[in-house]
Design a binder for these strands. Structure first.
Lengths: 163, 163
DNA sequence: TCAATACCTGACTATTTTGTCAAGTATTTA
DNA sequence: TAAATACTTGACAAAATAGTCAGGTATTGA
């Protein structure tokens, strides 16, 4: 159960664009890479990925760079995850984990499938409701905002203990 | 955002043991491997992993094999995931994704951390409440049981559309 | 006690995912 | 229009994950 490098780093780069959005002019790959501690080549690849997915637009030439395509409060973490690797869909799992067979032996009747379906539903629902702007504040505030948003008994203290 | 092969296949093997539990005698690796469409060597590795984690016990020698250690209704999917690769903890993410630096540049103040904390909390809470027995029924019933358990508006129809 | 059954272990190979590199194209500005 | 800036692309290298293999040890039962 993990977050891929693409998702983590890609999301961080996207947050840089969101943070930079108000300034109007695009931000260069070099700037993003530097402030994220990534190589320029790698940041380039990630931004390109986000660009292909339509979350980001690129401007070539001297004053060029990358720019968030929508308003930062209209782009969600869910959008980013979808663009960067996708959610835990059961169809992806079923197609991938087929053992030695060409089709999964549980294809017709699988006790596990409802589990992943449900997990996926939860995560997707949660992340689709977190706009990038929510994460531009400092960590304490971001946590606060998310906790209030999801509205279930979940305080910073329990949060810490869960992890 | 993905489920690792270890988690998926390991969980499937564990379900075989749970299914077999009432018969009393252990089930051999060969039997598990065959019914899951896995190689014997691989099933062996997975079962060994579950054994090290204490979810499963092994019996050597002629009538040997593997056996679930607890009662099938007392072992949860959450237990299995923990044994097989672990949850999406933020500490794992922070330690792993450090870019070119030795420490993540966001170590002190990270807007993303509360997101993963929350996601992790949700998933863990959900999976810890799904006992293996719930998944031994046929898929329709399993889905039904999970849906009732989590008690939120989530029908088979919407489930399909989400995936 | 010896042969057959089954688990145990660690090293090895294959595959996938991550990350880099180099040569290109588009745009601006002097 | 030439030089500098920046994005584009596809092939490649490195690292992590997945899966295999071979030789071992423990237990049973004839």
């Amino acid at each position: 159960m993990k977050v891929t490098a693409q998702e983590e780093y890609g999301l961080r780069c996207l947050l840089q664009l969101a943070r930079h959005a108000e300034k109007g002019r695009p931000i260069t790959v070099r700037e993003v890479a530097t402030s994220e501690g990534l190589s320029v080549a790698y940041a380039e690849k990630l931004l390109h990925q986000l660009s292909k997915a339509g979350l980001v637009e690129s401007v070539r030439g001297v004053r060029g760079g990358f720019r968030l395509k929508g308003r930062p409060d209209e782009v969600s973490v869910g959008d980013a995850v979808r663009a960067l690797g996708g959610f835990l869909t059961h169809s992806a799992i079923c197609q991938r984990y087929t053992g030695d067979e060409s089709q999964c032996v549980h294809n017709k009747n699988c006790g596990l499938r409802p589990v992943w379906t449900t997990v996926n539903y939860h995560i997707q629902k949660l992340l689709d409701n977190i706009p990038l702007t929510l994460l531009l504040q400092d960590e304490r505030q971001a946590r606060q905002a998310i906790v209030e948003m999801v509205s279930f008994p979940f305080t910073p203290e329990t949060a810490g203990s869960v992890v």
